[in-house]
Design a protein around this nucleic acid. Structure first.
Length: 596
RNA sequence: GGUCCUGUAGCUCAACUGGAUAGAGCAACUGCCUUCUAAGCAGUAGGUUUCAGGUUCGAGUCCUGACAGGAUCACCA
């Protein structure tokens, strides 16, 4: 039983003994005491006044006295209005510290026997990854880390959108204007090469539309009749028919793109256990349509199209299958949903997809639940907002995108110039320095994108957004490097801190206690972040830990402390903090350096 | 028009799910490197939580209604 639970249990006992009332444990909640008051935990009595039938102050005093007498760790209390501020003994904090410090599975909850799949990234193969994908990938990867720490078995999945009219556009343009160019001959990454032809297509297409407009067609007609779009559509039909030449070009260009993506993923530090390709899955789901009709969940209209009525759930009727019997987007998503379950017998399935698809996933999940899928309640759409630029929304066709590769490169370069400016790479080899720049640049970028609530749309200003001071990745990384330096020195001068029991320590400094209280929250934060699928919870916590440590670092001496036991304790506390930071940042996919 | 999301300091974000005097960072200003890394620490200043009602011991948080920004509502994906 941990400290909080012990106190809560005692409060329950207090009500039993003082007021002869049984209160459920979950009704009792402790909150952290505000800094300006004495104490660590606060119990709010207002909700229980009906039971105590006393004034708030009197209720608080009675409960406080009971705790002081009957709950071992509680040494004191004070009551302000209806708030009982509880003070916990120094020895309890030391016990907690020792427990955390000696816990081999610190930051990892025991396996819960459940399997979850997290689908993220899900790129199109006609263009390179951009800023929006970065938010997606970092979010997805961080969520997999958090769920693992919560004891789940996690499968990282990537559903690649490798077919459709947009792919054919790049292919058509390449056929006309490519002249046999390859990534090698052009000297650019494969995904960028495909993206180049996607842009070329769009420019040529617009030219053709303008010509048709001049010839008197309406805009709608022109868009439909431009030769290039007709060609792309025909190519899509040929692709679906398995036309050898089209398929060959498709395979060639996709291979280029995948090679490019691999490089970008590697740079980003994300990976996957399972790839799904829409070219394999786009025909799935028709069997589910049959099943739904049989179960009466779907119904057929006169023209043969199939629908589901979700009006009892507050939504509309949605089309499931076209009159001509072909699939729509949701048909294949239903199929993929089942496929994932079939492949891995997952309990939960998380989709990291932008909030423009909120409605789509609402519909999809409601359908799967209506069909009585065993994983139905485990479906979750991790929806996130757009990343906007100061110039407005990003549009790949206009070229107003921040390319992922470029941005990462820029971040690393910025980290390099910062580091050099501060003159902090004495004694680094070139490789070590390069590695550090990468860790810092990516750390800054990831932290920037992860510290914010995913639901919120965010503004990214390339010049101003990424800082290296304050609430940033490098600040936390810096705190870790500081501690690493302490630990190195402790090793050099032979401070034995790892096996001490600190038996003679009786008094803790405020900052020491505050730090222990905070480190003790790690598990709680992991659980919360897991329940909410919220890396921002961890990010915020990491900042708090780093900040608290830096205060400790500035206020209290370590190697100048003459009492050897206190000295060893402070080193050990530093080590635990470093471990917390390292584990926590790892959940976010951010590396921490030992020197910077 | 319907539905959903967002609105908190000049800017970027918190607020432990209804608790105390709404907290951090950036930007501005003041101190602190002859003790362990100043990418740091301490401090000053900055707020009618978009607005108007309501619910109650208590509302940034819940309800109603405005206002603003965004997304979505295709036999597109």
């Amino acid at each position: 039983m941990n400290l909080e639970q012990e106190i809560i249990y005692s409060i329950q006992e207090a009500f039993k003994s003082l007021f002869a009332q049984d209160i459920e444990l979950k009704q009792i909640a402790l909150q952290p005491t505000r800094k300006e008051f004495e104490g660590t935990f606060t119990f709010v009595v207002f909700p229980f006044l009906k039971i105590t039938k006393l004034k708030p102050e009197d209720s608080g005093n009675k409960i406080g006295s009971y705790l002081k007498e009957n709950c071992d760790p509680v040494t004191d209390f004070n009551v302000v209005k209806g708030f009982v501020n509880i003070t916990v003994s120094e020895s309890s904090w030391l016990d907690i510290f020792k427990k955390l410090y000696s816990n081999p599975s610190f930051g990892q909850l025991p396996p819960n026997g459940k399997k979850v799949m997290v689908e993220y990234s899900s790129p199109n193969t006609n263009k390179p990854l951009h800023l929006g994908h970065l938010r997606n990938n970092f979010l997805g990867y961080a969520v997999t880390g958090i769920l693992k720490a919560n004891g789940y078995e996690v499968i990282k999945a990537n559903l690649v959108n490798d077919r459709g009219i947009h792919i054919c556009k790049s292919m058509v343009a390449y056929k006309h204007f490519g002249k046999g160019e390859t990534p090698e001959s052009a000297g650019i990454k494969g995904d960028h090469l495909a993206g180049k032809y996607y842009v070329i297509f769009d420019k040529a297409y617009k030219r053709q539309i303008n010509e048709l407009l001049e010839n008197g067609q309406t805009e709608e007609e022109a868009k439909k009749n431009a030769p290039l779009i007709l060609e792309a559509q025909e190519m899509l039909r040929n692709w679906e028919a398995g036309d050898a030449e089209v398929v060959k070009l498709w395979k060639t260009m996709n291979a280029w793109v995948y090679e490019g993506f691999d490089a970008t993923y590697k740079k980003m530090g994300v990976d996957f256990d399972q790839f799904y390709y829409e070219s394999d899955t786009y025909l799935l789901g028709k069997n589910i349509v049959e099943e739904g009709l049989k179960k009466g969940v779907f119904y057929k209209k006169e023209n043969g199209s199939v629908w589901v009525d979700l009006s009892d759930e507050g939504l509309d009727e949605k089309l499931i299958l076209r009159a001509d019997g072909t699939s729509v987007y949701i048909t294949q998503d239903m199929g993929t949903c089942d496929l994932k379950y079939h492949d891995f017998k997952i309990d939960k399935s998380v989709y990291v997809v932008g909030n423009e698809q909120d409605y789509h996933f609402d519909v999809l999940f409601k359908i799967m639940r209506k069909l009585g899928r065993p994983y139905g309640e485990g479906l979750y759409h991790l929806s996130y907002g757009m990343v906007d630029l100061p110039t407005g929304k990003m549009k790949s066709r206009d070229g107003t995108v921040v390319d992922a590769d470029d941005l990462i490169q820029e971040m690393i370069a910025t980290a390099e110039s910062h580091t050099k400016e501060l003159g902090k790479i004495d004694g680094f080899t070139t490789e070590q320095a390069e590695e550090l720049y990468e860790i810092l640049g990516l750390g800054a970028l990831k932290y920037f994108l992860l510290k914010v609530d995913p639901k919120k749309r965010m503004l990214f200003n390339p010049q101003e957004s990424i800082e290296f001071q304050g609430n940033t990745g490098p600040f936390i990384q810096y705190s870790h490097a500081r501690i690493a330096s302490i630990l190195r020195k402790a090793g050099q001068i032979g401070v034995d801190y790892s096996k001490q029991s600190f038996e003679n320590l009786s008094q803790l400094e405020n900052t020491e206690r505050d730090l222990i209280v905070l480190l003790n929250d790690f598990e709680k934060k992991i659980i919360l972040a897991g329940e909410e699928y919220a890396p921002s919870v961890i990010a915020q916590y990491m900042f708090d830990v780093a900040k608290e440590y830096n205060r400790f670092y500035a206020e209290l001496p370590i190697f100048n402390e003459t009492n050897k036991e206190i000295q060893a304790f402070r080193v050990a506390l530093s080590a635990l903090t470093a471990k917390t930071i390292q584990e926590g940042m790892q959940l976010l996919g951010i590396k921490v350096p030992d020197r910077m």
